[in-house]
Structures are given as structure tokens and as C-alpha cells.
Design a protein around this nucleic acid. Sequence first.
RNA 1: GGUCCCAUCGUCUAGUGGUCUAGGAUAUCGGCCUCUCACGCCGAAGACACGGGUUCGAGUCCCGUUGGGACUGCCA
Length: 499
Amino acid sequence: MPREENRQMEEVRVRFPPSPTGYLHIGGARTAIYNWLFAQKTGGKFILRIEDTDIERSTKESIKGILDGLTWLGITWDEGPYFQSAYADDHQRAAQKLVESGHAYKCFCTQEELEGKREEAKRRKEDYHYDGTCRNLSVDEVNRLEAEGRPFVIRFKVVRGPGGVLFKDAVYGLIEKKYRDIEDFVILRSNGSPLYVLSNAVDDIRDGITHVIRGQDHLANTPKQIMIYEALGENLPQFAHMPLTLDPQKRKISKRAHGEVVSVQYYRERGFLPWALVNFLVLLGWSTSDNQEIFSREKLIEVFSLEGINRANSVFDIRKDDPKFFTDPKAISINAHYLRTIEIEELLPYVQAEMEAAGLWDPAFGAKKKSWFASTVDLIRSRYHTTKDFVNQGRCYFADDFPIEDKVLRKNILKHEDLKQWLPLMAERLEALEEFTVDLIEQAIRDLAAELDVKAGILINGARAAVTGQAAGPGLFEVLAAVGKERVLHRLRETPNLY
RNA sequence: GGUCCCAUCGUCUAGUGGUCUAGGAUAUCGGCCUCUCACGCCGAAGACACGGGUUCGAGUCCCGUUGGGACUGCCA
């Protein structure tokens, strides 16, 4: 009992321990988000630890990519990044301690021997567990083999007898694993380096981790780690395993199999707002009882809880070669939602960044023309899905060179021979306006339509095509006001050249 | 194969024995709005994997079947 009381007094400490073998992917980001949220919620600490023990596969670029990805998402850490490789001594000491206390032993079996036994078992359709050849070696034998210079690994000595490891997972509930189903697993390689199961536990102990929130793929490893904690005489953290994210074929998503579309970077490059991605990701396997889906940062922290984590894996509905959706439609819809609803001031920097990258940025947009810039962005944003759209579909508002879609040209201009005269005529009328306001523009154009005895729609759609190159967009009069008198007149007068 | 986990609309999910002829979101379709396209609003279609129990009553509890996933390395 006193142990539990202590635990409640303890500060919550959670961690995200990525291995730097590639970019930050969706699954990792989601794990980081859940941990971060839990820390924020409980006033605890979120620790970043880079598990770079596999030096062969770890790269500097990968570490940078992970840090950049988290930072972009707004997932900040309170401690670290710590590097696992810096604590090799801890891991070896722990292994040594386990050997000395009789919880582990040196195993001299060679990989070839083991491989042979595995094959043999497989051939006989039996499941293979390490047979314990070295488990009961006498002290003399161990000394002799070591003196011979024979390499050895250290294996954890699993209890042989009835019973098993029982623990309560915050998400999955009671989990039991029988001792007989656990083999004497390796904790230290023959070269002295630790295996994940050991180093991860030792690091969590050193870092004072109170809650281990991680993917369900680690559920099967947990009993082993619990045995290590216990053998080391340490208190257990609380475990919470979260469901995995699968692809539409129900395969675990991975960098290797899915490539870019599962990387955080991809969403950044495709024009996602970081918080929109976080909001989408948190919904993959977690929900509130009232099923709310859009959360501000503060609200999310307020309502997040481990109880809301689902047990079933969820599907990240990525589309391959879908002309309409480049990723899960729901992710896009959430991004579009934020795009059209956040404070315009908050959106502007993202649009600016896109424009700078596209070479469309004019410093005046941030100064003298700022209110024009803001209102123009506001005018067009409701039909955009990503910030990229501002420089693609939105190009005509900010630049003089913009494409006119073929179909639009044919349907809204070429089809009406008279527009060759009418649009320049419209320019005349607009030029005469005292002020270039939406109301006056509308009046002038409707008057012109009446005068010419044509449906206003003909003129309106023609003008839209000539001025924006597109068939769709905001109300034409607003568009003209936004594009500005001078440019509108020019574009209308250019119409004859389109024929 | 063995161990563990999971199972509600295409996808994300609400649902903790009766209020479920199963709710929301997204995607799809239709309508309204309208100069177009979005937005917004209204509406349609769309799911409790199957079979046994338990119970007056089961999406909800139990068992089995099927299906899916994870783990099963001197990877993390």
C-alpha cells in the first residue's frame, strides 16, 4: 500500500524513445503525441530519448529529422534528447548485476548452434525456445569456457515452474503470460552491447519513467521487461499500450512498405497545418465519450485521458493513386477545416511561407498591403484544402502570370464569340468607376449585361475565366475587388488575345 | 506453428444489459443557397463478422468459430 501512495505523489514522467533509423513517421508521431498529451495533462515531464544502440542503422540525418518533425508538430520535450548510446555502461552493469544475483547467466551457445536447433524445431513443427543448455553450467565450466576466450551472451533466467507474469495495462486490462511461454532471452550481446529489452528498461528506470505509453507491438515484450524490473528490485511503471495504425490492407504501416505518405515530413511539404495533423492523428485510436473531433491545443490537453484509448487497431486510410485524395480524406478534411476557421492572423505566416517558397512573396504583403493580403487570403481560403492551394489555385490573386485552364477557356470564353468585345467593354465601364468596390463593380457589370441584353452569368463567368483562369472561385465581384482595378482592366483587355 | 491482443457504416468512432427500428464525423449521392466552386444548411444511402449460450431482454456478458493484427532475432 505505501508503495501506491508514493506513486501518486510522484511526478508523472513519460518518454518517447525513437530509434533514429529513418524519418519520423505517423505512428511514431502519434505515440509522441499521446505521451506529450499525458504529460501536459498531468503536469508531468515529457522526455525524449534517442535509442541509437543500433549504431549500424542510426544516422545523424534521422535524428535531425525526428527532432524537426516533433518541433514542427509543436510537440515539445522537457528533458533530452538523451542518447541511449551514452549509457552503455549502465546496461552492462545491469546485466552484470543480474548475473551476480542469479537472475541471468552466461550462454556460450553459438549462433550457428542455435540456428540449427531452430531449424530442427521448425522442421518438426515445434515451437522453439532456447533449450537452456548453458543455464545450469557449473561455475567451473563457465570459468573454463571464459578462459578459453569463448564468446558469450547473457541470458535472463526465466522462472521455470507454474505461474507467470501478470500485469494491468491501462488500455488492455489484465494481461497474463505464463513463464513456460517465455524463453531465456538474451539481454546482452557477445560484443557487450545490450538488447532493446534490457536497455529500454534500464533507461526507463534511470529516467524515472512512471508511465510507459507505447504501441501495442510492445505488449508481448512487456512481461520480459517486468521480469527485468523485478529482478533489479525496481518498482514497475504503469503500462499503457495503444493500438497500432494499419494501412487499408491492415498491414502495420512502415517506412519501408509505404514510403513518404507515412512520414510527418510529407504532410509538412504537402501543406498541412501542424496542429491539423496532430488533431487527425490523435483521433486514430482515441476518442471522447461525446465524440468531439476538433480540439484546440488547450481543449485537447484538458480532455485527453488514457481511458479514451481504443483497443482495436485503426486504419490510416491512405489512398494510392487517388486523383482526389493524396492521403486519408479525413486528414484532409480536418486540415481544410482549420484552414478556413483559424484566426486569419494565425494562418498568414503559413501562407507567407508557401509564397516565399514559390517566389510570389512581396514584402509589402506583410506591411503596406497587409490588410489587403489578409482579406484576400480570407476570401479564398474556404475552398482550399492545404496551404499549397494558395500558391496554386490562388496564384492569380498574387501574381500576373497564371495559367488559364483549357476547359475553362473553351467553355466560358471561346464559346461566346461576343466576349471578345464585351470583356474589353467591361473594362471600360470598370475603369470609369470612382471607387473599385464590390457594390459598384456589381452594379456596373449588371448594368452592362442589361444594356447588352445578355444574361449576367455570361459576363460574370467570362470575366472570372479571364481574370482568374478558373471556373470556380469566390463571388466574381469580390474577386475583381481583390485582384485590383489595374490588373483586372489589363486582364479583361487581353481577352481578344485568347481567341 | 506457438503466445498475446482485437472485431459497430468504405474509413475514424459513440455505445459499459432495456432509452439502439444503433448516434456522430469523414467520404459518396440528392436538395437549398447562388454568377461558378467551395463554405453553410437540409436530406438519402451505408455497420453491430458468424454460431451457440446466460437473461424477461444482448451491439453491450460468457463460450466457440471465422477473420485481422502483434510478438516469436546476439533489430528497436
